[in-house]
Nucleic acid binder design. Structure first.
Lengths: 232, 232
DNA sequence: TCGGTCAAAAATGTATACAAAAAATATAAG
DNA sequence: CTTATATTTTTTGTATACATTTTTGACCGA
């Protein structure tokens, strides 16, 4: 993770003509990606100047973006001593887990209630694709498709606010999820859970789906926590 | 709600010596109160200049505060045309209700699991106080104590993140709750629900508490929605 | 070598300045 | 009188400037 990474071509140059986006949103979303993808270490201090140079903007809009991200819980504001990437503690995960569980349970109900045949078919297709990646032990593509499946389910729930709130929590642990390598056992267990999810979805069995999602989440959570305990 | 309300004594003057707070936090919290208490109409545009003068600060910190509040969902950012107080639509409430329900169910479980005898006694005391206000038909004090009870329960759950997330959602509808006047029936129903809550709490019966909280919430929700339909 | 003090450097917090866009007002035409 | 257009005024978005505070590190003495 070299300090002199690519200066991420000035944000302003990139923006098209029919410009519905704003500099603020762009900055928020760019920096959010940096944090989630792990380009910025948790706990690392973020001098405003380096991000200013990286994105080619002045401190004013940059600071506004930082405030927004802090409000999302991705950054931490240390008055008079800058901003740092929020560190995910085991305590945080313990607080987040039951909340995500509650949201997933709701998600299961809503998704089953609203899922169309088309959506189910899409999810099914993604599922088989994911299983394929699993059998080939292709971790990155597996994660990508996995992510897509969860997004499809969230989408089916037809509740944008739920999507946003869940997404926010998921974003805060995503980094850890990427790094945490799954043991073989956990991985096949995850696949089994996905099979159950698909079955529950096809039966439109909300409570069953909620239950699977909950167990699935608990395992993800344990994986993250054991990663936190080892690495930090 | 006069436009020329008290200029809210410049924020900076108020801040004490042993100053752990920051201007940013103060501004966020002051403006948040303005929105929640209804001093700023939903849908109203907020010219930066008037808030700058009101609080005696320049645009830079003010704008940072606005960005934070927008991220909380209390304000809406309209690029190039300012900021306005988020309007609560019936659709919003429909999305928020199931989420708050899920969180309250969790809340019930956690509160029962962690509630101490002391905490229970406190809640019980507040409850009787609330019933007193009800019998006297004192709406404002009733709401205040009601609020305190819910806060105590949230506190007992011992999950700060849950508290924060729930508080955020509650804040977004609080304004409507204040204005919406409860019919006599609804009010006594609410009291009955509170009796049940207390009973469930004393038995430490999580599922029962979750159930009461859910029904209680559904009623609050209906009150809010009928208010939205009538007034706008 | 290890602290400790003080000065220099850098970073943050806030205010102001300037450019560009939107809103308001005035003006003209029908 | 209404509608359309031009012009002024406001307001927003961004950059820069300045005031404090924090951090760094040089220097000194034990």
């Amino acid at each position: 993770m070299s300090e002199t990474a690519v200066p991420s071509e000035p944000i302003r140059g990139r923006r098209g003509v029919s410009d519905t986006s704003t500099l603020h949103e762009d900055l928020v979303s760019e920096i959010r990606t940096l944090v989630i993808e792990g380009d910025l270490e948790p706990g690392a201090k973020i001098p405003e100047r380096v991000l200013c140079e990286r994105f080619g903007v002045s401190r004013t809009p940059l600071r506004e973006a930082l405030k927004t991200l802090a409000s999302e819980g991705l950054l931490e504001l240390l008055p008079r001593r800058g901003v740092r990437v929020a560190r995910l503690t085991e305590e945080d995960v313990d607080q987040m887990f039951p909340i995500m569980g509650a949201l997933e349970a709701l998600l299961g109900e809503l998704a089953c209630a609203h899922l169309t045949e088309e959506q189910f078919a899409e999810i099914q297709a993604l599922h088989y694709q994911m299983v394929l990646h699993f059998t080939r032990r292709e971790l990155a593509p597996y994660f990508r498709v996995n992510q897509q499946i969860h997004e499809k389910i969230l989408e089916a729930a037809a509740n944008p606010l739920l999507l946003q709130m869940y997404g926010n929590l998921a974003g805060r642990i995503r980094r850890a999820r990427y790094v945490a390598n799954m043991s073989g056992d956990r991985w096949s267990q995850a696949i089994k859970e996905h099979e159950e999810m698909l079955a529950a979805l096809s039966r439109r069995d909300g409570p069953a789906l909620a239950d699977v999602l909950r167990r699935h989440l608990r395992n993800k959570c344990e994986t993250v926590k054991s990663y936190l305990r080892s690495g930090t």
